[in-house]
């Protein structure tokens, strides 16, 4: 018999922002709920390594879900005549909807990239519902570095161009096996999905006006950013951290924009101490 991994996947049907959504999620471990948010244009598979790490799953129930349009979560009915564009309101409703549906008691929410952006919003708007937030490659705002129109047009292959745009966000030290696994998420994403996520990232989530309102005594905030991330740069993260009293921020060497999936071994050195700290929080 083949060796079975401890990760288990299921579906839930949930109304989010007035839409009927069929959401795929997977999980492993038991203990403190740790809800993980994938990057733009990708899916929850990015967190599979955390789910296979007993140093984490012995204390944490690690859960990752695919947003609608991503991974194994279908787009909603009528998608064929719609230009997908993620908003702060919908994203928040999806995350809190999944947390409530699974009856998670004050979960830790950890998001990467756009997931790192939204946790800054959640730390303020839902402080008392959360144990802590962890923002990977997170900042309250960042400068755009290309025209997203290239990501979805008929004379350029969407999957190929999405992956080739972001390939340099993986650090050169990351093992090829994990580099290409990370890029597969982009190569295989649906048409216009990455671009639609970037609507949230670029046009509907400038949080520079509100991160100073985060009360880290109610909801502690941890920020980890890879030194090779030129999208959300270390400078973006450190600037954001300056405005959040009590935040803990660290720059990760030899890592890029996808630390949990591009180099799981290296990422452990940084995330395990943070999860130790979080486990000791009340």
């Amino acid at each position: 018999m083949a060796e079975l991994e401890p990760i288990v996947g299921r579906y839930m049907n949930l109304e989010i922002g007035g839409r009927s959504c069929r959401i795929y999620f997977e999980e492993a471990g038991s203990g403190i709920p740790l809800l993980c948010l994938h990057t733009a244009g990708a899916d929850g598979r990015q967190f599979r390594h955390l789910m296979l790490d007993p140093a984490i799953t012995d204390r944490y129930r690690v859960i990752a879900f695919d947003l609608p349009w991503h991974g194994k979560s279908l787009p909603w009915e009528g998608y064929e005549v719609e230009d997908y564009a993620l908003t702060t309101d919908f994203y928040t409703a999806a995350i809190m909807g999944v947390a409530n549906a699974l009856e998670l008691d004050r979960p830790v929410i950890m998001g990467c990239s756009m997931g790192g952006r939204i946790v800054l919003h959640l730390a303020h708007a839902h402080a008392d519902d959360l144990r802590a937030v962890i923002g990977l490659e997170a900042a309250d705002h960042q400068q755009p570095w290309y025209d997203t129109e290239w990501l979805n047009r008929p004379d350029v292959h969407g999957g190929e161009v999405c992956a080739a745009m972001i390939s340099g966000l993986v650090a050169p030290q990351s093992p090829d096996r994990y580099r290409w696994e990370t890029l597969w998420g982009y190569l295989s994403s649906g048409p216009g999905v990455f671009r639609g996520d970037l609507h949230f990232y670029r046009a509907d989530s400038d949080f520079r006006d509100r991160v100073h309102l985060i009360d880290t005594t109610r909801c502690p905030v941890f920020l980890l950013t890879g030194e090779y991330d030129f999208s959300c740069t270390p400078a973006d993260t450190l600037r954001t951290a300056k405005d959040i009293p009590g935040v803990e921020a660290e720059i990760m060497e030899d890592l890029g924009h996808f630390p949990m999936s591009e180099n799981p071994e290296k990422f452990r050195e940084y995330i395990l101490p943070v999860l130790d700290r979080v486990a000791r929080l009340k």
């Binding site: 400068q143 570095w145 290309y146 340099g168 966000l169 050169p172 030194e227 090779y228 030129f230």
Partner: peptide, 15 residues
């Protein structure tokens, strides 16, 4: 093994 900022075409164009 290029340093950050010199490791990718778009890292170079952004800066």
């Amino acid at each position: 093994m290029p340093r950050p900022g010199f490791h990718d075409l778009f890292a170079m164009t952004k800066s």
